[in-house]
Nucleic acid binder design. Structure first.
Lengths: 184, 184
DNA sequence: CGTTGCAATGCAACTCGTTGCATAGGTACT
DNA sequence: AGTACCTATGCAACGAGTTGCATTGCAACG
C-alpha cells in the first residue's frame, strides 16, 4: 500500500497531526495521491502500532488537543526499503474513455461530458502552472527536495496538458463525424 | 461504480460469458479499466439480479458449460442514464511521484525506478502505436464506433507518450543534479 | 501415464477506500 | 442568543478490489 508511504514521506518532510496531514492531502501531496481524514487516522494508528512513527500529545488553548506524529528510525528504514522496491507501473483508469466507447448511444451527451472534463482539467492545469510560476521561478537553480517537488509538479502539468489536448482532439473528431452524418 | 458500466458497454458491443469478458479486460477495454475474473463474475451476478442483463446457459462439447450474457432493455436504459450523468474528473494517482518526493533518501534507487517505469511505459506505448497502425490505417475515414475506439486508443497513446517524456525530464534533471553535487 | 495448460465458474477472506455520523470546544457573524 | 464554521479525532457500515483456493473436463506434451 502506498498511502502509508505517502504519509511517511510527508511526515519526514515535516511532522504533523492527522488533521494537518488531511489538509496536506487536500493539496500538494494530495494532487498525486488522494486520501480522506478517515483513511489517514486509521493508517496513522496502524503505523504507530508498527512503530514507524512516534506520537506526542499536544494540548492547545482555544483548540482541541492534537497528536503530532514524527517518523521513527524504523519508519525511515521503511522508506528506504520501499524506495528500492520496484513499484507496479501506474495504470490508466478513465471512466470517460469507457463512455466514449459507448458514444453511439448518445453522441451529444458524451460530447458534453468531454467538454465538461476538458474545462475541469484546464482549470487544474492553470492551477499547476500558477504554482510553477509562483514556487519555482528559477528552475535551473533547483536542487534536492525543491527540485524533486518541482519535477512532480511538472508531471502533473504534463498529464493535465495531455488530457486537455486529448479532449480537444475528441471534440473535433466528434463534431466532424456529426457534420458528416448530417450531410449524408 | 464504473465496472458495471464498462461491462455493459462491452456486452452491448458483443454478448459474452464471464470468461470471455475477463479476456476482453486483459486487452482493449482493459487498457483503460482493469478487472479480474472475480470482480467480473460477481458484478455479472449483481447485474443479472438487477435485470440489466439476460443470461443464457450454453452447453458446449469438449468444454464446460458457459453462461452467455446479453444486455437487456433495462441495461440499455441504464447505459443511457449513465452516459448523461456527469462523472468525476479522473484523478492522478502515481506512486512514482511520491517516491520522487522522497528521492533525497536514495537518489540512485529512485532514478533506477524512474528508468524502469520509463521502459515499461515505452513498451506499452509501442503496443498502442502498433494497434493504431494495424487497426486504424485510414484515420480520416473513421466514423461511429470505430472512430470512438480509435479516439480512446489515441488517449492511451497520449498518456503513455506524456509519461515517457516526463520520465526523461526527471532522469535528465536527476543526473544533472547529481553531477552538480559532485563537482561542488 | 502423469503433468501442464486451457476453458469455465465460483467461494472465502482480506485490504483499501468512501460515507455518514458523533463529539466537543472555540470563534465569528447576525 | 442562534447559527455556522473551524479544529480535532474517531466509530461503524458499506462498497470496491485483490488474493488464494477449489472444481470439472478436455487436450497436448513427453
Amino acid at each position: 500500500m502506498a498511502l502509508e508511504h505517502a504519509i511517511l514521506v510527508s511526515l519526514s518532510e515535516r511532522p504533523g497531526s492527522g488533521y494537518e496531514l488531511t489538509r496536506r492531502f487536500d493539496k500538494s501531496i494530495g494532487f498525486f495521491w488522494r486520501a480522506t481524514h478517515q483513511q489517514i487516522y486509521r493508517v496513522l494508528k496502524r503505523m504507530d502500532d508498527a512503530g514507524w512513527v512516534h506520537v506526542e500529545h499536544v494540548a492547545q488553548d482555544g483548540k482541541p488537543d492534537k497528536k503530532v506524529y514524527t517518523v521513527s528510525a524504523e519508519g525511515a528504514a521503511e522508506i528506504s526499503r520501499w524506495l528500492a522496491e520496484p513499484a507496479q507501473p501506474t495504470e490508466l483508469r478513465d471512466e470517460l474513455a469507457i463512455k466514449l466507447r459507448a458514444a453511439h448511444g448518445d453522441p451529444d451527451a458524451v460530447a458534453a461530458e468531454v467538454a465538461r472534463h476538458r474545462a475541469q482539467h484546464a482549470e487544474r492545469l492553470a492551477l499547476y502552472e500558477a504554482m510553477e510560476r509562483r514556487d519555482f521561478p528559477d528552475r535551473d537553480a533547483l536542487t534536492g527536495p525543491a527540485l524533486h517537488q518541482f519535477l512532480v509538479l511538472r508531471g502533473g502539468i504534463g498529464a493535465e496538458r495531455g488530457f486537455v489536448a486529448w479532449c480537444d482532439e475528441v471534440l473535433t473528431a466528434l463534431r466532424r463525424d456529426a457534420e458528416r452524418g448530417e450531410t449524408r
